[in-house]
């Protein structure tokens, strides 16, 4: 269920260079690491059909690889055209070297 924590990755598998991909209730999510902190959003751009994990991470902004739309990975909010629908975003915690996420209400 979405109100429960779901383990999605081992901390050692998430790099600062490129987002990792995980799965929650059948939904693909992207897991990001910036300055040691973890963040998670839906992995699918709300504009074209593209994986954000194939995109370019610049600070807290993930850029879609298809049309350069920008989202803030901290809250899933749109941060640059052409996107205008926010991403689902997830709360993240680390338990025993495992990244766990929970859909944010």
């Amino acid at each position: 269920m979405s109100d429960e924590w779901t383990p999605v990755a081992a901390t050692g598998d998430v790099s600062e260079d490129q987002p990792s991909v995980g799965n929650v209730d059948g939904a693909e999510i992207a897991i990001y690491k910036v300055d040691g902190d973890y963040f998670a959003t839906s992995n699918i751009c709300t504009h074209g059909l593209a994986r954000l994990s194939d995109g370019y991470l610049d600070g807290f902004l993930i850029e879609c690889p298809l049309h350069q739309g920008l989202f803030d990975i901290r809250n899933g909010k749109c941060a640059g055209d052409p996107v205008d629908v926010d991403l689902a975003s997830y709360d993240v915690r680390v338990v025993n070297d495992t990244v766990e996420v929970r859909l944010r209400a």
Binding site: G55, Y56, E63, P65, Q68
Partner: peptide
């Protein structure tokens, strides 16, 4: 080609 992540850098 299917590699948009390189465009920004």
């Amino acid at each position: 080609i299917d590699n948009g992540r390189d465009i920004r850098p």
